[in-house]
Amino acid sequence: MNGSEQASAQKPATAARMYDYYLGGFHNFRADQEAAERVLDQFPHLTSVARVNRAFLGRAVRYMVDCGIRQFLDVGSGIPTAGNVHEIAQAAAPEARVTYVDIDPVAVAESLEILEGNGRATAIRADMRHPETILAHKSVRELLDFDQPIGLLLAAVLHFVPEDDTAYGLVRQLLDALPPGSYMAVSHIASESFVPSDRYSAATAVYQQQTSTPVDSRSKPDVERFFAGIDLVEPGVVWGNEWRPAPGDPEIKDDDPLKKGVWAGVGHKR
């Protein structure tokens, strides 16, 4: 084993790189692959749920661009993969600006490498549990104008904040910092799909024991609470594949809620 292989083998698993593995990406290491396979042993359909979630993010970004949003704050952005927010937004509106935020240094480093030469997009390392550090970050303030509407993206990330007070509080703090006319997209693993069971306990234990980010699901009403005080865009909080589906997007044809996996919605701050 050479030095690079040994270093990769010793890297601990992270939620961001496990998600990259679910999506079929290549920015993951042995620990991520082994941890992800342990989760997939319990929920093999999680790979399709991850693809559905990624497609929802793309549709939400395109919807916001169509509504006039030209700047985005993507919190918990993860490892860059196909269909990144800046690619989608800037394809429709070249002047669009994007700031990615993640706690994983590898995710941030990979993002900065991809964004080299793109003056309208950047990435920072910060913990969403402390939104004040995101809002005050020099790079965020330099790129985004908080006097103009912003698209806040919280895709498949709030389930890594299992404490309700912290999760709802950080969303409220981020929303309060956004001007009227802003939008927020949220997706979240569903309690209706990942019901308490030995399988669920085994899957969540992987995140608890092998990463620094414990995970827990929330019900549809719990996810709707994140939109308190702003207007839900039609069709409201629905299964990820049912939020304004587009041709060519991945589908979950099974109507069994145990296979749906993720709640998703977009809200508008008036």
Rank of each mutant, 00 (worst) to 15 (best):
V233F: 00
R199W: 07
D20I: 08
V85M: 11
R225Y: 03
P149G: 08
S212I: 04
M128V: 14
L152F: 02
D104H: 13
V161H: 04
T211L: 07
R62H: 12
H130G: 13
A91I: 10
T14R: 08
Y19C: 14
S191N: 05
G117Q: 10
N28R: 02
Y200C: 02
Q173S: 06
I150T: 11
A185P: 08
R125G: 15
P44V: 08
V39F: 12
D255S: 06
Y63H: 13
F56I: 09
C67T: 09
R199I: 05
I103D: 13
R51Y: 09
D41C: 13
P257L: 01
D254K: 02
T122A: 15
A35T: 05
L174E: 04
D127I: 12
Q33C: 08
A136F: 08
N53D: 15
Y183N: 06
Q6R: 08
K269C: 06
A155S: 13
I114Q: 15
A15D: 05
D231L: 03
P247L: 02
A246E: 06
I150N: 11
E95V: 15
K253S: 09
H130V: 15
D74Q: 08
L174D: 06
H86E: 15
A35N: 03
G248K: 00
V52W: 06
P221T: 04
A16M: 09
E234W: 05
A202C: 12
P214K: 06
E95F: 12
V171P: 10
A123I: 07
R218W: 01
F29Q: 05
S48D: 10
I79T: 14
E163Q: 07
S77H: 11
G265R: 01
E163K: 00
D32R: 06
K260A: 00
C67N: 13
H86M: 12
G248W: 00
P94M: 14
P257V: 02
Q6I: 11
V186N: 05
P80H: 10
G83N: 11
V157L: 08
A35V: 05
L175W: 02
L258I: 03
I189H: 07
Y21F: 03
Y63C: 08
Y100F: 13
N28D: 07
I103P: 15
A16K: 10
I114V: 14
E37V: 04
L232N: 00
G265S: 04
E251V: 07
F227A: 00
R244Y: 01
P105L: 11
V98N: 12
P149H: 15
Y200T: 11
D104Q: 12
A203T: 03
G25E: 05
A7S: 08
D222F: 00
K138E: 15
K259L: 07
L135V: 12
P221N: 02
L178W: 13
A167G: 10
S219L: 01
S193A: 03
L144I: 11
A93K: 13
I79V: 13
L174G: 04
Y207W: 01
S217H: 01
A136N: 14
A93F: 15
K220C: 05
M184D: 07
K11C: 11
D255W: 09
L153S: 03
